[in-house]
């Protein structure tokens, strides 16, 4: 039984959920994710483990309402509600190294998955610089938690409503130019990771990114999550989701993310009509 034991809004379309999943909480590691299915008719969607508590048997997920499933979760699932299926932890854990300076870049809802990685790096002994960015201040969250998980934290917004005005790649390029950096981590929308990868490559610094292709099973059985890394086709759910950013075929990832646009719109429309009818 995967009950939601806590839910907190983090922004207009973003919420944090604490969900009962004792087995997952017991073995979770930074960089891993779960696949959940809300109900019998539901789709299986991947969500990163933002945090976990083995003693309480719970995991923390941060979800942005985008399409049918995430919107339904945002609008209709609250404390006490049960999520039909939660499976994980899936994917390979982040390779945590405890030396040198590491820059962790997060874009938008990517703040959530970056948090446990930054925390683990810091605990292991690395010097962690965080850069987190969003379109505007209301989409930022977990500033205090990120502050604690890093040694330095840079905040950017596209509109300048909080922190520095501009994109995360600007402070990233400055830091890489000024200091000796061992590795960069970047998690967020594919386009943002693509530009972070270009920035890091230009500076000759290795970068790890967390890819988010469309998935079905999440266990290596279907190949829906195929990505191209260094000319090789890899399954993001089992070989990743983290890969060396400089080797990722970003255009392919972006194209494949758009594969079901029409069907996604159809599902969302149907959901909206259903909600409308229910509230009329």
């Amino acid at each position: 039984m995967h009950s939601i034991v806590a839910k907190r809004p983090l922004g207009p379309e973003i919420a944090q959920y604490e969900v009962e999943a004792p087995r997952v909480a017991r073995t979770a590691a930074p960089g891993q994710f779960v696949v959940l299915r809300l109900h019998e008719q539901g789709e299986r969607i991947p969500l990163t483990l933002a945090d976990w508590d083995p003693s309480r048997g719970t995991i923390t997920l941060v979800v942005q309402a985008l399409g049918k499933t995430t919107r339904e979760m945002h609008e209709l699932y609250g404390v006490g509600d049960v999520i039909r299926d939660v499976v994980g932890p899936l994917g390979e854990p982040s390779e945590v190294v405890g030396e040198g300076t590491v820059v962790c870049v997060a874009g938008g809802v990517g703040i959530a998955p970056v948090f446990p990685i930054a925390r683990a790096l810091k605990e292991a002994g690395a010097r962690v610089v965080g850069i987190i960015g969003a379109r505007s201040s209301d989409l930022l969250f977990w500033l205090e938690r990120m502050d604690e998980a890093t040694h330095e934290l840079v905040v950017t917004t596209d509109d300048g409503s909080t922190g520095r005005k501009g994109l995360v790649t600007e402070p990233l390029a400055e830091i890489l130019a000024a200091r000796q950096v061992a590795r960069v981590w970047a998690v967020g929308p594919a386009v943002m990771m693509k530009f972070c990868a270009a920035t890091a490559s230009a500076a000759g610094v290795p970068i790890t990114v967390s890819l988010n292709p469309i998935m079905v099973d999440g266990t290596g059985m279907c190949g829906a999550c195929r990505v191209e890394v260094g000319e090789h086709v890899r399954f993001a759910c089992v070989d990743g989701p983290e890969f060396p950013g400089e080797e990722v075929n970003w255009d392919l990832l972006l194209e494949r993310l758009a594969a079901y646009q029409e069907e996604e719109r159809c599902a969302l429309d149907k959901y909206r009509r259903m909600v409308q009818e229910a509230t009329r």
């Binding site: 008719q41 049918k68 499933t69 079905v216 099973d217 059985m221 079901y260 599902a267």
Partner: peptide, 17 residues
Amino acid sequence: TRVNLMRAWQFPEYDTP
């Protein structure tokens, strides 16, 4: 898997296309 396990043949009654 999409069609059988996730019942895509019943999309959009079922969410998986």
